[in-house]
Design a protein around this nucleic acid. Structure first.
Length: 577
RNA sequence: GCGCUCUUAGCUCAGCUGGAUAGAGCAUCGGUUUUCUAAACCGAGGGUCGAAGGUUCGAAUCCUUCAGAGCGCGCCA
């Protein structure tokens, strides 16, 4: 039950009928009318800007127009206790107690559906995220995007969209070749006692390569690993699959599972790159040409050469992008275009890519390619997750692959835990850099938003424990005729905003709104809880060790939303802390 | 040089696709525990929303210019 949506529709209908009577003029588009959460200082539950939006076209003062609308609204709405017109022209509505009782009854009897935006068009989504090179375990840098993609998927699923979560495996190209070589040298090190060529900067020096090498040796006792050229293919596939094992374990420990792993090699092998380039050629989006060097001193050795280019400038990119390297092999971009063609052929309504900040410059060209292939502008939506600034011992921590001092997902999970990692990584808009302070994330106090929200749930659980029940038990509430105080109504107001939070998070693909909302709800609950210290009527369990239906309903409503929200975030709700 | 993102309280950030006197947390200062979990609560101080223009009844939010920070700009993916 989304009360904002209900009243928005009500007001739009009203405006349309007033227009039919020729009482007022309306614009062709009513989309700027909204029903919103009023600032706290006003004694009301919802507010609308309708009078201000319509004032101009009616050549009247918003306050005058508001009077007309208010009179009409009052006529046939039994829920309204009070309706005010506030200065520039807002209409503020306060509901009767009866309305809130009805609201509670509705959301408790349907608690699984509360928050879901049933009216949103149901779509088929593909969310591609993580897609880290399969050259080793995930590190902290991958975490934020991984969690972002996972929770965006959760929100979309919650809103009843179909979601496929996909990982694009870049198991093709030079980095993979270097990775395979590294594994090869480690194998020789183990079997032939040959020294690993540390001086070769292209190789991966990490310790985990040794583990991968050991596993490969153990599982392939009959294979002769002595000639690299002969076994490159075989070894690549073994090494990549070992890598993926590590990555999948990392993801699992973060609470993430993908539905599909799409291999780049498969796409190249199936000649999908050639196919897609042919298609683009026919549409005249591909040509042989030269691109200008970037103006940058470090690129002074630039050699201009003719290569196969994609006309991404037709779609607003700053330069056309190369599809082929000088050795005629495909660029990463070329196979990625093929991959997106592959995605398009699977008929998703919308494709979402989660990229790291360092790949933001890539968005224009890949979006361009999708537009060129599909003819649709908004088929692909790329979300960028900004950098995470790690802070250890109060100081910024810089990771360096060369030195090998980088923090893996495994380190992170074992030090701060999955839940804290997820909640904190998600608590800021993905557009801004995030400070991740190990000490703070580990802290078990109100300074840690995760525990603050979980504590709210634990407090509610403890009330139920005291009456010999469990927070998840079903309660049969006979009649919803409660006399809630204004403090309690405040909590109900916040709860009524939950579907709106989901709606916006889903529309804008901004999952950080969920933890922010949960924090606010928890905060209101904690305030209310503490009122019980001074005022016994505000306590859940009375002096006779009983609890009223009134309080049960309120507690159930709060705990349901917290639980739902936390499961979207992908963290637990312990009943005891 | 060009492109993308960011700039809100001392610090870290929210601010609902233009609305009301811009909100939290941390830090600082002061208070709350014989009572359902103090991992909590209450109160106080703290602001030229980077700067300047523009659009609008109305701008932190949209547009332009400028400044600062980060990321990126063919044979890495």
């Amino acid at each position: 039950m989304n009360i904002f949506e209900i009243y928005l529709n009500k007001i739009k209908e009203l405006v349309l009928s007033l227009n039919k009577d020729n009482s007022i003029q309306i614009p062709s588009n009513l989309s700027s009318i909204n029903v919103d959460v009023p600032p706290e200082k006003f004694d009301c539950d919802i507010s609308t800007n309708v009078a201000m939006v319509l004032a101009k076209i009616n050549q009247t003062n918003p306050l005058e127009l508001a009077k007309t609308i208010v009179n009409e609204l009052k006529k046939n709405d039994k829920n309204i206790e009070k309706i005010d017109i506030a200065k520039p022209g807002f209409i503020n509505i306060k509901f009767k107690l009866n309305f809130w009782n009805g609201f509670l009854k509705d959301i408790l009897s349907n608690h699984k559906n509360f928050g879901i935006n049933k009216n949103e068009d149901k779509k088929k989504y593909l969310v591609e995220f993580v897609s880290a090179n399969p050259t080793g375990p995930l590190h902290v840098g991958h975490c934020r995007g991984a969690i972002l993609g996972d929770v965006i998927s959760n929100i979309l699923k919650f809103n009843e969209h179909k979601v496929t979560k996909e990982y694009y495996v870049n198991d093709h190209g030079n980095q993979i070749l270097n990775f395979t070589k590294s594994v090869y040298y480690r194998i020789l090190e183990i079997t032939k006692n040959k020294k690993f060529p540390k001086e070769d900067k292209d190789l991966y020096p990490g310790e985990y390569i040794i583990e991968i090498a050991k596993n490969i040796i153990n599982d392939n006792k009959n294979v002769d690993f002595n000639n690299f050229d002969k076994i490159t293919k075989k070894l690549t596939s073994l090494a990549v699959s070992e890598s993926l094992k590590l990555i999948k374990t990392n993801l699992k420990n973060l609470g993430i599972t993908h539905d599909n792993f799409q291999s780049e090699t498969e796409i190249v092998k199936n000649k999908e790159v050639e196919t897609v380039i042919d298609i683009l050629k026919k549409k005249n989006f591909v040509y042989l040409g030269k691109i200008k060097a970037p103006i940058d001193e470090s690129k002074s050795n630039w050699v201009e050469r003719e290569q196969l280019l994609f006309r991404s400038t037709d779609f607003g990119d700053d330069k056309d992008r190369p599809l082929q390297k000088s050795d005629k092999s495909w660029t990463y971009f070329a196979s990625d275009v093929a991959y997106h063609y592959n995605k398009l052929n699977r008929n998703f309504d919308l494709m979402i890519n989660i990229l790291g900040a360092d790949h933001a410059g890539y968005i224009k060209r890949i979006s361009a390619s999708v537009e060129a292939m599909s003819g649709e502008k908004n088929k692909l939506n790329c979300k960028v997750s900004q950098l995470v600034k790690l802070i250890k011992d109060g100081k910024p921590f810089k990771m360096s692959k060369r030195k090998g001092d980088y923090i893996t997902v495994e380190d992170l999970i074992s030090e701060v835990g999955k839940d804290a990692t997820r909640f904190i990584m998600l608590s800021r808009s993905s557009d801004v850099e995030l400070d991740f302070d190990f000490a703070k994330v580990k802290e078990k106090s109100k300074d840690n938003p995760l525990y603050y929200v979980q504590y709210c749930y634990a407090r509610i659980s403890s009330v139920f424990r005291h009456i010999g029940k469990n927070v998840n038990d079903k309660f049969d509430i006979k009649s919803y005729d409660f006399n809630y105080s204004s403090d309690e109504i405040k909590i109900l107001q916040k709860i009524s905003q939950w579907p709106k939070c989901i709606e916006i998070s889903s529309k804008k693909l901004e999952p950080h709104r969920v933890p922010v909302y949960l924090y606010e709800l928890a905060s209101q609950f904690h305030s209310y809880w503490n009122l019980g210290k001074d005022d016994e009527s505000k306590r859940f369990i009375n002096e006779k060790k009983n609890i009223s239906d009134e309080k049960i309903a309120l507690l159930k409503a709060v705990s349901n939303v917290i639980k739902q929200g936390m499961s979207i975030v992908g963290v637990g709700t312990p009943e005891k802390m």
